[in-house]
């Protein structure tokens, strides 16, 4: 991975590791394979995954702002 980097190392490049979190949260099925607790009548299985769409988008946005080069 390093061999292709040009001179300028990215700002806050550690932040990219945050993007692993969504993989763990949604690919490990036992975390969410249940009906209870329900929210507004919606089983856990479904609202958990909806919630992670939002969290994952938020994380990606955070990483974007942390790593985007300063003008």
């Amino acid at each position: 991975m390093q061999d292709d980097r040009n001179g300028a190392p990215g700002r806050n490049s550690w932040a990219h590791w945050l993007l692993i979190i969504p993989f763990i949260a949604v690919l490990w099925v036992p975390f969410y394979n249940s009906v209870e607790p329900k929210w507004q009548g919606i089983p856990y299985f479904f609202w958990y995954q909806f919630l992670w769409i939002l969290i994952s988008a938020g994380l990606t946005a955070a990483v974007y702002f942390l790593t985007e080069p300063k003008k």
Binding site: H16, L19, I20, P22, F23, V26, L27, F45, F46, Q49, F50, W52, I53, S56, A57, L59, T60, V63, Y64
Partner: peptide
């Protein structure tokens, strides 16, 4: 619903 985790993990991958 696999379509949901699918479209969750695709974007961090695309971002990188």
């Amino acid at each position: 619903f696999f379509a949901v985790p699918y479209t969750i993990v695709v974007y961090p991958f695309v971002f990188m």
